[in-house]
Design a protein around this nucleic acid. Structure first.
Lengths: 237, 237
DNA sequence: TGTACATCAGTGAACGCGCGTTCACTGATGTAC
DNA sequence: TGTACATCAGTGAACGCGCGTTCACTGATGTAC
């Protein structure tokens, strides 16, 4: 990830920071964000409590670091899949959705940290919006090849108005799908993306929260159905 | 809700229990489940801490009470809509989905309590599964009038296997849609229901967690699109 | 209707716990000349 | 290469806080005869 620091001291520092985050992630996995406790991290990593303040200025700072890492990690995972997508947008959609589900299933606690209920008392840093968009970017490209049908046209309408007004979104459209904000396909692309996001989140979060336990179906099958429906609606080839 | 108790003492007791729950709900709304604290509740209700143990045997018991109430309340709200549905299954689906969204938006914290990330350290009582099914029951009926199409047939297949094996589900199908578990429509009905549930949860939870803040669309429009897609896929009239 | 007793609501003191965070400090590592 | 100084990692003691929960108790309300 980060470029290897030059001096030994800096390298050691990086290592300790990583150790701390690793234990914090384990606590996150075991008891949710509230269970991330500096006191216990210190004990596990073999330091005394106050020593952690050399590495993170406080608890929120540590949480923020975990949030950023999770977004970046998700974006990287999706990005890897996005780099080698087949020509068929329909197949591409299924592959992307699968990558999303796989990432979330492999690290449920990290998924819930960035996409679950907001952590009380914790305010996510403003740059998370940009990071979230990096995860969804590849979907924009796919749906820009879609066709607008009646079922989703009101949503697409709202979306294209948004694109015309919000510069950050315009940049996003340009970066991932080479679309101008006033392009007719912009609304379609955004509508498809937000629908895909919502479908993914619905399935993944119910699965990851254990709500599907005891039910006779796999999240994978369900996700396939949902992506089929989207591909049908947007007439993806 | 509960039948008015006879004796004055019992009535007073019911009232105090209700007061406690009301304050607990406010704390839930303000800081999530972790913020529900007996000590502070006692202070607000004008009692000393230990007095609460006359009303709830411990903190988990209070939380469980809130969970049950939330399910029942949701089921009642959905039930009211379900009682006067139009003949068209397509319109009925939109109305039900709207009722679901409305309930969740009106009480986001209660929605997250029963459908959000699991509360660490808290185990939901076993009867919540049944209560959750009461909320989704009306959807089963709607989709039992649906047609099975390619996009969702693998999911419906898994679902009908499940119905054949799980007696509780068989009972559920019978109660809400008058279907035998080996009826060909059982898989269709269940597949539609779980897809609707997932779509609802995706939209509602992203909305309720504030993830749509700053985006140029309404959850309502998005939900309409999703229900349109479902109605199309299941060929609802 | 009055009395004796049982039940129940509520209190104050106290418990142990883990938490985030500050502070003054020591000793090791790096840097400049 | 050696010395003087600055920087940095880490420590132990201590802080105040809010929490859930137990305990022995008091006083009010209900019940049986």
């Amino acid at each position: 990830m980060t470029a290897a620091p030059s001096s030994p001291r800096a390298r050691y520092r990086e290592q300790t920071r990583a150790d701390i985050k690793e234990i914090a992630l384990r606590q996150l996995a075991e008891g949710g964000p509230e269970a991330v406790a500096l006191t216990r991290i210190a004990k596990e990593v073999g330091l005394s409590g106050p020593a952690l303040y050399r590495y993170f200025s406080n608890r929120d700072d540590l949480l923020t670091s975990l949030v950023r890492d999770a977004y970046d990690d998700a974006a990287t995972a999706i990005g890897h899949t996005a780099d080698r997508l087949p020509d068929s947008p329909r197949e591409a959609l299924h592959l992307l959705a699968g990558a999303y589900l796989d990432w979330a299933s492999a690290a449920p606690h990290r998924y819930l940290l960035i996409q679950g209920s907001p952590v009380p008392g914790y305010a996510a840093p403003p740059d998370t919006v940009g990071r979230a968009r990096a995860v969804l970017g590849p979907f924009v490209k796919i749906f820009s090849a879609g066709e607008l049908t009646d079922s989703v046209s009101p949503l697409a309408g709202e979306m294209s108005t948004w694109a015309a007004q919000d510069e950050a979104v315009a940049g996003w459209l340009r970066e991932y799908a080479d679309l101008a904000p006033d392009d007719a396909r912009a609304g379609t692309a955004l509508a498809g993306t937000v629908l895909a996001w919502s479908a993914l989140h619905g399935t993944v979060s119910l699965e990851v929260s254990g709500q599907y336990t005891g039910m006779g179906h796999s999240a994978k099958t369900q996700l396939t159905s949902q992506m089929n429906m989207l591909a049908d609606t947007f007439r993806l080839a």
